[in-house]
Computed example of a mutant assay.
Amino acid sequence: MTASSRRQCGDRGAVSLQLVLVVPLLLLIALLVVQFALVWHARHIAQYAAERGLAAARVEDGTAADGRAQARRSLAALGDRVLIRPSVIVERTATRTTVRVRGPVIRVVPGLTLHAAGTASGPTERVTTATGGQP
């Protein structure tokens, strides 16, 4: 047996072993990229729903229930597959209104649960006099 044939026999199966080790790692990296892109997208959905809920709840005749309903409608319109079972919390006082939307993001990587949230806050609209007091 010559030296070159011995070298060839010693390298047999090396490509298969590298393939078995590298391909799962590459697939995991690809899945992680997709997972974090979905989290980024879900954060934008949650923020949009919170802003829409704030717009409905902060008006003079608005209520916390109006804001919650508008946020839920916005979530439904954008698709409920990315942000799973989102919670909508609306706090409305005489001076400030806050809407929080939060929920888990759909899983692509098994065992990895990530959450996305959006918050919008602003002054509650009310009629005041020129001096700043209530009419």
Rank of each mutant, 00 (worst) to 15 (best):
T2I: 13
G10M: 10
G10L: 14
D11W: 02
R12F: 00
L17C: 09
Q18N: 07
L21Y: 10
L25S: 06
L26I: 08
L27G: 13
I29T: 12
A30H: 02
V33M: 02
V34L: 14
L38I: 08
V39M: 03
A42G: 03
R43H: 05
H44Q: 08
A46R: 01
A46Y: 00
A50C: 00
A50V: 01
A57V: 04
V59W: 03
G62E: 01
T63C: 05
T63N: 01
A64W: 05
A65C: 11
A65Q: 14
R68S: 15
Q70E: 15
R72Q: 15
R73F: 08
R73S: 12
A76P: 08
L78W: 02
G79H: 09
D80M: 09
R81M: 02
R81G: 11
S87P: 06
S87D: 15
V88H: 03
R92K: 14
T93Y: 00
T98P: 04
V99N: 09
R100M: 11
R100G: 10
R102Y: 02
I106Y: 05
R107I: 01
V108H: 07
G111W: 10
L112K: 06
T113V: 08
T119G: 00
G122K: 05
G122M: 09
E125K: 05
G132D: 07
G133F: 01
P135I: 00
P135Y: 03
